[in-house]
Design a protein around this nucleic acid. Sequence first.
RNA 1: CGGGGCGUAGCGCAGUCUGGUUAGCGCGCAGCGUUCGGGACGCUGAGGCCCCCGGUUCGAAUCCGGGCGCCCCGACCA
Length: 571
Amino acid sequence: MRWSKALIPTLKQSPAEAEVVSHKLMIRAGMIRKLASGIYSYMPLCLRVIDKVETIVREEMDKAGAQELLMPVLSPSELWIESGRWDVYGKELMRLEDRNEKHFALGPTHEEVITDIARRELRSYKQLPVCLYQIQTKFRDEIRPRFGVMRGREFTMKDAYSFHPTKECLNKYYKLMFEVYSDIFKRCGLKFRAVLADCGAIGGDETHEFMVLASSGESLVLSCPDDTCGYAATDDTAKSKILSVEENLSGELCEKDTPGKKSVEDVSAFLNVNPFNLIKTLVYKTSKEPVVVLVRGDREINISKLKKVLKDELVELADDKTTTDISGCEVGFAGPVGLKQKVKVIVDLTIKNMGCGVTGANKKDKHYVNVVPGKDFDVEKYYDIAMAKAGDLCVKCSKPLEEFRGIEVGQIFKLGAKYSKSMDANYTGEDGKAKPFIMGCYGIGITRTIAAAIEQNNDENGIIWPMEIAPYQVILIGVNMKDTQTVAICEELYKELKEKSIEVLYDDRDQRAGFKFKDADLIGVPYKVVVSEKNLKENKVEIQERRSGSRDFTPRDNVINYIQSKIYPLF
RNA sequence: CGGGGCGUAGCGCAGUCUGGUUAGCGCGCAGCGUUCGGGACGCUGAGGCCCCCGGUUCGAAUCCGGGCGCCCCGACCA
């Protein structure tokens, strides 16, 4: 491609809206342009990178015996109602109506559609296992789109679904997909880590997220520092041994005035006790009646764990009215002793060894001191519903956990029979009986992977593409396009590079050299081939490496060899 | 959905508080000339529904009301 004919609208300044480096660079490099919040056009340069990543994904998926298909973006509400997710998925599901007022969803993921295909087309255990995948535009009405294509409302995703006769078969395939994913992200040049994660609205048993390590990442991961232990999990999944505290309170239960003191910080400061001596009382709404949840004052509730304990997906913090109805007083003074309404109380493990603690008294401006769990209020069972933190001890090996930030670029799930059961998708087994499919599903955010690659590969001058996903492998720059010899040699090299199937962007614009170098750095092409009058006098051409900035000079006739040795170092 | 901010040329912004020349600046764009190895310079020029609708006023980018869009923080999220 000749740059003079290419639409690569680079920018010196990045628009004010861009926060993270990948977003800024994707705009500045002319890769993306915003159409609406969280919705972007992929410009030609970006599309080349998307094609590269998709190719890697296809090659590796096909290696694992998966087959590509393409399902509709639009799916009827019936399917979602059948699986139960029409309600569970919530506002994130983009919904629309046709002219007959029939409801549809724009697919955020395709378990329902693929399960429908499976129940129609897969009949016998002899056809299993089978894995089907697609690369397609997905829609999620994100609560807050941000960071460019990192969290968009419309994005490209590879989603794969496998069908098995048994759990063992699924487990085997899950392991295979784990390897496939590792290979894919390695080929994309990413530093990543696979971590245990929460199943969320998709459901299922075991699941791993593939995290690209980046300080700008939206996900927080807790991991064991010991590589041989290897425990790592997202913050909403992580289990940990939370240290019990030494400094317990003791004494008789009594009521204290705490005027206007509602938060843990305020109450602990006012009563001159530690936050970990408080018992925090929160009210949550569920799909049925509200529940009260207790956790130690220095800890946060992990809503994912709470959902599992309650076996309910529709759990959220209650509004003020619900809270006051239950406690009988204004928000901030609720406690487990003397609640106005009798409701289920879920108590976190951190409360177990507390001795006594400070709780709200269910009266305005009052707290109880020296409340004893199990004595002053009933505890039927202790649950692990607290958020793990760095410093907590690893559940496997008891070393203190560390935390890091990551960008979730892929996730693999063991769905089990969740969808096949709810949607009545069965095959006939060897014994002639109908059995539900055991399913797995496997996603990769294609466009998010690209943003993650930029987060990990950039410097002050711009993007530094890993070779396998670079939009072009080399950029050919003529230093002075008014020099006829420079232009002649450039034209020759351009032709030769193309003949050797090397992906070359020829910057034939009549611009000053510095201008072209800056643009080349910005769009991140791994190698520059620089043709100048000066070097041509010695019959030499300069080759620069983007990542290291190193410069090398090679005879004009050796340029192709040189570049090939860099692009295909193994040969 | 709650809190905060913004909307003026393709991009980045000033002007708005305190209404009043022809609405400005930098970058970019077009033409001419000089320059030519790390985002050059000079001259000339094009480009505006000042987010939209309504109101106040002799007069509104500016004040008032309503709406829309975008960004940030929070709750939330394969």
